[in-house]
Amino acid sequence: MTAAKKAQGPVLTTRALNRATLERQLLLRRHTMKPAGAVAHLLGLQAQNVKPPYYALAARLDGFDPEEFSGLMASRELVRIVTMRSTIHTHTADDALALRRLVQPARTRELNLFRKGLAGVDLDQLAVQAKELVEEQPRTLKQLREVLLETWPDADPQALGLAARCLLPLVQITPRGLWRQSGGVFLTTLTHWLGRDDEPEASPDDTVLRYLGAFGPASVKDFQTWSGLTRMREVFERLRPGLSAFRDENGVELFDLPDAPRPDADTPAPARLLPEFDNLLLSHADRSRVVRPEHKGRTWAGNFAYSVFLIDGFLAGTWAMTEEKDRVTVTFEPFDKLTKSQKAELEAEAAQLLEGPMGLGLPYDIGYGQVVRTQ
């Protein structure tokens, strides 16, 4: 008998799961917490590109100021580093130290994906040499590969760079990640960048509890999808006496913090504009709590991800912003026909973004496909 068939506890409908997750994700209403506090609560922000963390917080925080967030990057209170799912995240300095150590086994396993290109390479020696190189001076992956190739000329250059990224906690140093500033991807080690190494590895138990606080209710597979870690069932079983258990509509067991908010399924959910790679869409094995089955896979084109918008709490389409010298244009591509009130809500959300600190202070257009409304 499968774990799903054994699951006990009340059933949470998809809509109830949606509202609970949005509440944990700070998306049912904008919050007044500080940016660093929000980043910590959310266990980091997906950050393959520079702008997504800013747009992620603009959708979640009241009066969000991108310059304040940028200042936290400049002062090294926030950093950009590979952690969960082998992707770049923006974390608080403490979480960068603790969570990277927790997920290091997953990063080490990742080496198996390109082991052929590392034939004959002493990985311990590679880690030591790469650490010395990036701490001597920040380097790009290309620069790092070129030096490592001098030691292992027969290795695959790409594999050498990826191995260094897997073995070492490499951060992207500023000005990369600062608001409206350009900067290449130069790397050094996390401890060298922070000037400290005083944060212990995050415990699996505490991380599960934090994950439920930010993404719950959730299954064991959901946590494993978010973290990239495996064999986490025993951690959940150890925590079970202190957790609440539910089932989704398919009978899958979900865990949650007993006192965590689970709003009524009919709680209003405002329109929200989210960036590409927002963790709301990437942190569960079953994404149906936010993505309806008919819309699955519509936010990607190859390796490219679109920015998305939510209507009534669910993924409803994509959006793009084009910046020109004297004008900004936001274009929406809904997956289904929107009502007049839904369009009004969506346009009001876009106007708030464009007219606030995130905007450029320029005139703007809001449109759908080829139909553009001038403001």
Rank of each mutant, 00 (worst) to 15 (best):
V328A: 13
Y368G: 02
L57V: 04
D154L: 07
V252F: 01
E355R: 15
R262P: 05
W319D: 04
E355W: 13
L353V: 13
L22E: 05
S203L: 13
V128H: 08
A344D: 12
A74T: 12
V252G: 00
A285K: 09
R24G: 04
G213I: 09
Y55E: 09
S244M: 11
G317S: 06
V103L: 15
V39K: 02
V121K: 00
M1N: 08
F304N: 12
L273C: 06
F314V: 14
D326N: 14
F309A: 07
A260H: 06
T87M: 05
E237V: 03
A98Y: 07
A202E: 11
D256I: 02
P258W: 07
D326E: 15
G369E: 07
V11R: 09
L354H: 07
A344I: 15
D95G: 15
W319F: 03
A202Y: 12
V185C: 14
H284F: 09
R176C: 10
L148Y: 02
T267R: 04
E146K: 09
A3Q: 10
E23Q: 12
Y368I: 08
L190N: 05
E345M: 07
D62A: 14
M84L: 14
R107Y: 13
V371G: 10
L45G: 02
V208P: 03
T188R: 10
S182V: 14
G356N: 07
A127K: 04
R80E: 15
R109Y: 07
V235L: 01
